[in-house]
């Protein structure tokens, strides 16, 4: 299927298609990814905190039934494949955005798919905080809220950054996938302009752009996480 991409004609044609679309495609992908991640964090971070603090033996145990419900809900949302989730939430998307087609519309299913994932990542980051430090804060009379704000979150910043980078790159992948069902951005270019029209060179360029974006996010995330970590640095 790729034999025709090696002709000069194929690349000239690809250039015609990409010149007006590629930059805006990259921009759309970036902004959908960042916006969805931000919104997923807004919901997922407090939820992840609750998953840790609400456990039996946590700093503020919640009723077991509530914890079971939250865990079941998160597992349910995480087990639905993204494309099916997009279709399932179409009514909600239409309600919020007014349409199910286009860049803005994909933010709704993206956030719904990503916040449970973010909650789990936050849960795992916060679980790494040593019980001794939490006990220390408790022994000083810190309230559960102050323990979260003053100990659990600051102590797990490097781990949170690493994990949220994973969330960001995963959401970027979902963004591209949404191109199949009317989403915009690089995914739309790769699928609608490339794959469906047999313009494989177009698809290839869009995919390479996606790979570069993932690499870039990962690079920034890794750097940032280690720059923030005060545990190893000398002479900080």
């Amino acid at each position: 299927m790729f034999e025709n991409i090696f002709t000069a004609e194929a690349w000239r044609e690809a250039w015609r298609i990409l010149r007006p679309t590629l930059l805006s495609g990259i921009w759309e992908t970036l902004y959908v990814t960042l916006l969805s991640t931000a919104l997923a964090i807004v919901i997922g971070l407090p939820l992840g905190v609750l998953l840790v603090t609400g456990r039996p033996g946590g700093v503020r145990p919640l009723p077991r039934a509530l914890m079971r419900f939250l865990n079941a809900l998160i597992n349910l949302l995480r087990s639905i494949p993204f494309l099916i989730l997009m279709i399932v939430v179409f009514p909600l998307t239409r309600l919020i955005v007014g349409t199910v087609i286009g860049t803005a519309a994909t933010v709704v299913p993206l956030v719904i798919a990503a916040f449970p994932f973010v909650a789990r990542l936050v849960e795992s980051s916060l679980s790494e905080v040593s019980p001794g430090q939490i006990e220390m804060a408790q022994s000083m009379g810190a309230s559960p809220f102050r323990i979260v704000i003053g100990v659990m979150l600051p102590e797990s910043v490097p781990s949170l950054i690493s994990n949220l980078t994973i969330a960001l790159t995963t959401i970027l992948g979902y963004t591209a996938m949404s191109g199949v069902l009317g989403g915009g951005g690089l995914g739309k270019i790769a699928i609608s302009y490339g794959y469906y029209r047999y313009k494989y060179a177009v698809m290839l360029v869009a995919v390479v752009c996606l790979i570069l974006l993932v690499e870039l996010f990962q690079l920034i995330g890794t750097r940032l996480a280690s720059a923030c970590d005060k545990r190893q640095k000398k002479n900080g």
Binding site: G132, Q138, S139, M140, G141, V151, P154, K230, R231, G236
Partner: peptide, 23 residues
């Protein structure tokens, strides 16, 4: 009331339990 009481009673530990991300 318990938290207020705990501020009167400090504790130090074998593992120090300092906040590692804070100076």
């Amino acid at each position: 009331a318990l938290r207020a009481y705990r501020r009167q009673v400090s504790m130090i530990f074998q593992g120090f339990h300092l906040l590692m991300q804070k100076n």
